[in-house]
Design a protein around this nucleic acid. Structure first.
Lengths: 358, 358
DNA sequence: GTAAATACGTGAAACGTTACACGAAATTTC
DNA sequence: GAAATTTCGTGTAACGTTTCACGTATTTAC
C-alpha cells in the first residue's frame, strides 16, 4: 500500500533570493526622533540631553522638559551611533563548541542572562570543536571592537588575543588569563563521601569523552583521594573517544556473578553517562539505588522529567556564568585572581513520584 | 567523619565591581586604520575605498593600490560606523523560550549557522515562556534597528510589530506573518504507516506538554487519519502540563495482562517522551522493539549516545532554520507564501552495537 | 562681603562609514 | 567622426551619538 505522506498544505521550497530582491529589505526604517529633536523640543542643548540619557545630573527646569520631550517624541537611543562614538559595542563574544550538549546549553543560557542583567548583548560563536573556527571568531571579536570574549575552548595551544578582555571556562592557560571553573576535585571527593555515607563497599569511577578535557580527570583524582582516605575500595574506568559505550556494558556483565555485581556504587563523570549506566543496570535486572548507588556530575536535571532523578554533583552553572561576566567586564583589574574555583553541591536522586508527592 | 570538601585552590567570590573600577575596562582600544588612512595610503578618494570594500567595481590602477594599502595598514572595517550610516545592523533577533530544551538548542544552532553564512549576527533572546519578556524583546529589536525577528512564541495573542521583518516558527498568526514549520500532520501519518509496516496490530498515541502547542495535535491528527485509512486499531492518550509522567506508567501497567501488553506500537509526540516510555517498558520486562515498537518525533539524536536509538520522525531543523533566515531577510517580497511547511523523514532505531558494527 | 570652588548647560568637534551629485574619461551608437 | 551613453573616481554631506573645553551661575569658605 502506497500512502500519501504530504499534508494538504504543500511544502514550498523557497527560491534563491536574488540580490536585487534582497535590497527591498534594506529599505530604511521609518525615521525616529533623535537627540537633536529632543533637544529642540525641550529647548536645551544636545549635550544636555546626552547627559540626561546617560544618567548624569541635570538640574530641575531642564530635567522635566527633557523627560517630557522624550516621552512626547517617543525617543529611543540609537545603539549604533552610541557604539560608533563611544567605541564600545556592549557586546561580548561567547565562544563554545555547540549548544547541543546540555551543559553547554545551560552555560549559554546563564551567560546570556548575566550579560542581559548588565545591559550587554551576547554574540554566540559555535566552533564545532574546530580550532580554526575558534581563532577566526577571536579575530572577528577583536576587529569588531567587541567588549570582551568568554571562551570554552578545546585548543590547548590557543593564542590568547591582546587588548581585549578574555576569560576562559574550565581551561587554564596561564596566570594572565582568568579561568573560571567549578571545583571538580572537591566534587569527586564529595561523590566518594556520599557513596561511603550511603553504605557502599566498593565503588567504580567511569568517564567517557575526549581526554583533552581534564575536568573528568580532576573529578577522578578527587574521588580517588577520598576513597583512599575513607578506606573505600575502588576501581577506575576511563574510556576515550574511540571506545563505544558498550565497553561499559561489557564491564558490567563481566562483573556480574549469579545476578549480583561485585560493587555497589558508581561515580560517573557526567549525568549523561550516569543515566546511561542506570539504564543498563536496570536492563540487567539490577535495582537503582537499592542494589547499586549511582552518582553523576553536572547537575543537568534535564533528565528530571524521566521517572528517576540521578543523584548528582551539581555544578553552579549560574554562578560560573555570572563570574565569567563579572570577570570579563572587569578584566583590567590586576588584583583579580586568575583561577576562580567555585564550590559544587550534592543533589540526591529519587523517583518522580517521590518528587510529586514528597 | 568530617571531610574536607574544598580543593586546595580556595574558591574566591568576586567582590562587587565599583563603577570606577569598571571604567578601566572602557579604555579605548588601540586605534586601527580607517578608510581615510587607506585612501591616503592608496592615493585615492575615500568614496573609492568604500566602493572597493563593498564589492563595487573599481578599475585597475586603483584596485591594486587600495588592496595593497589595506594589506599594509591591516585595515578592518568598523561595524559600528557602517551600521550607523547604513542603518542596518546585520543582526537578527531570535526569540525563543530557552536553550535547555534540545529541540530549541538545535534550532538556535542552525539559525545561527544560517545567519553566519549570510554574514548576519544573531541576538539571542530567552523568554522563559514569559509573555512580557517576549514583548519587551520585540520592542527592543525594533528600537535597536535590528534587521529582523525570528520568534518561537507561546503567546497566541502576540502583537506582531510593524516595520520590521518578522517570521515565526511553528506558530501561525495570519497570512501576513510568515510561519515556518515542519509537516507535523504528514509526520503523524508517517508514524502510523511505519508502525503498520512493522506489523503492529494496535497502536497508541501519547503526548505531554502544554496544550498551547498544537504541533503535537497535528501529529496526532495525522496519526489518527492514517490509522483509520490503514484499518489499524488505535488509542489516543493526551496529558497536559499538570499531569505527571507517572500517569503514563499507570496506563502501561493497567494494560499489561500476564506480562503482555494489549498493544504493540506507540507513537510518542516527542523523542524525549519516547525515550522515557522505552525506559518504563523495559523496566516492566517488555522488549523494545521486539514486543513493542516505539516511534518518537523530532529527530533529536542526542540520546544517540545511549545504548538504543529511538525510531523517530525527523524534523528538518537545518532546513527550517535556513528557511526562517531566507524568509526574514526577504520579508518585503510579497509573493512569498506565508505558511511554509517542510517535509519530515523517518529514521529507524537500533542499538549502539548495530551502529558501531553494522 | 569677597574670593575661591563647585555645578552644570552650551556648542562644536569628532567617531568611521555610506550615499549622492558631479564631472571627466571611456565607450558605444548611427 | 560627432553625439549620446555609460563608467567610475571625487569630494562633501550626512548618520546619531559622546566628549570636552568653555563660560556662566550658584554655592561654599573665611
Amino acid at each position: 500500500m502506497k500512502m500519501q505522506l504530504t499534508s494538504p498544505a504543500v511544502p514550498a521550497i523557497l527560491p534563491v533570493i536574488s540580490k536585487k530582491e534582497r535590497e527591498v529589505f534594506h529599505t530604511p526604517r521609518k525615521s525616529t526622533a533623535t537627540m537633536v529633536d529632543v533637544a529642540k523640543e525641550a529647548g536645551v542643548a544636545l549635550g544636555t540631553v546626552s547627559k540626561f540619557v546617560n544618567g548624569q545630573p541635570v538640574s530641575s527646569p531642564y530635567r522635566e522638559n527633557i523627560a517630557a520631550a522624550i516621552e512626547k517624541l517617543g525617543y529611543q537611543i540609537n545603539t549604533n551611533g552610541r557604539a560608533l562614538r563611544s567605541n564600545h559595542s556592549m557586546t561580548i563574544a561567547f565562544i563554545i563548541p555547540n549548544t547541543i550538549n546540555p551543559y553547554f546549553a545551560l552555560l549559554v543560557h546563564h551567560i546570556n542572562m548575566a550579560l542581559e542583567a548588565r545591559n550587554y548583548k551576547m554574540l554566540l560563536c559555535f566552533t564545532e570543536y574546530n580550532r580554526d573556527r575558534e581563532s577566526e571568531f577571536i579575530q572577528m571579536a577583536v576587529q569588531n571592537q567587541l567588549d570582551g570574549i568568554i571562551a570554552l575552548t578545546y585548543n590547548p595551544h590557543l593564542v590568547i588575543p591582546e587588548g581585549i578582555p578574555f576569560v576562559t571556562i574550565d581551561r587554564f592557560f596561564s596566570a594572565s588569563v582568568p579561568c573560571v571553573s567549578s571545583d571538580n576535585f572537591a566534587g569527586g571527593r564529595m561523590a566518594a563521601l556520599k557513596l561511603h555515607e550511603l553504605g557502599c563497599r566498593k565503588a567504580i569511577f567511569m568517564r567517557t569523552g575526549s581526554v583533552l578535557t581534564n575536568e573528568p580527570n580532576k573529578r577522578r583524582d578527587g574521588f580517588v583521594s577520598a576513597c583512599i582516605e575513607l578506606s573505600l575500595p575502588f576501581e577506575v574506568l576511563a574510556y576515550g573517544d574511540e571506545q563505544p559505550y558498550s565497553d561499559f556494558e561489557d564491564y558490567l556483565h563481566a562483573h556480574c556473578q549469579h545476578g549480583r555485581l561485585d560493587f555497589d556504587g558508581i561515580f560517573c563523570a557526567t549525568d549523561m553517562l550516569a543515566w546511561q549506566i542506570i539504564h543498563s543496570l536496570r536492563s540487567m535486572g539490577q535495582r537503582v539505588p537499592e542494589d547499586v548507588q549511582v552518582i553523576g556530575f553536572d547537575g543537568i536535571r534535564m533528565f528530571g522529567s524521566l521517572d528517576y532523578f540521578v543523584s548528582t554533583i551539581v555544578q553552579p552553572v549560574a554562578e560560573i556564568a555570572r563570574t565569567c561576566v563579572d570577570t570579563v567586564l572587569a578584566d583590567a583589574i590586576a588584583s583579580r585572581p586568575s583561577l576562580i574555583c567555585l564550590p559544587v553541591t550534592y543533589a540526591p536522586g529519587g523517583t518522580t513520584k517521590e518528587r510529586m508527592h514528597p
